[in-house]
């Protein structure tokens, strides 16, 4: 029973890699928006994802506040709000550190948009929710732990 479960998980993981590769290929053709950053979104760890975004070593900052529940009962819907009071914030990226693919979203602000985003994310398990803020060519980061009782990735 348990061994079967492991096998299923393994094959699920491999199939997803193929699926993602296919998706990435699809996206490259005929996208009117800026190209979707497949390297960063498919990365399996936070450092790799950061590298994919071109922001390797962010500095810890107290000027980023992450509003998220301490305990999320349902990992499928975790409300997260990121506010950056760093002047000239142009980008906010959200990571759930222990998700299979940690990068959840990256936002780019322009023309007066403030350093604030609010959304709902999925979390596979208890982990740090990390925000990476880009301001004036530099990157800053902050994190908050969210305990998850029921994971929201996979079924």
């Amino acid at each position: 029973m348990n061994a079967l479960r492991r096998n299923v998980l393994k094959s699920a993981g491999m199939a997803s890699v193929v699926a993602m590769a296919a998706t990435a290929g699809l996206l490259k053709s005929g996208s009117a928006f800026a190209a979707w950053n497949a390297t960063a979104f498919d990365a399996k760890s936070v450092p790799d994802a950061l590298k994919g975004m071109g922001a390797a070593t962010p500095v810890e900052s107290k000027n980023i506040s992450i509003k998220a529940p301490d305990i999320a009962e349902n990992g499928a819907v975790v409300p997260v709000e990121v506010t950056s009071s760093i002047a000239g914030t142009t980008g906010i990226a959200i990571f759930a550190e222990k998700n299979a693919t940690p990068l959840i979203a990256s936002f780019t602000m322009s023309n007066g948009a403030e350093g604030y985003v609010s959304t709902r994310i999925k979390m596979g398990q208890t982990a740090m929710v990390r925000a990476v803020v880009t301001a004036g060519g530099k990157t800053y980061t902050a994190a908050k732990e969210v305990k998850v009782t029921i994971g929201g990735c996979g079924g």
Partner: peptide
Amino acid sequence: VLAAQWGGGISKNPY
């Protein structure tokens, strides 16, 4: 004003 790239980690029926 805002351009976002999302992965599958955003919840169903996104806010």
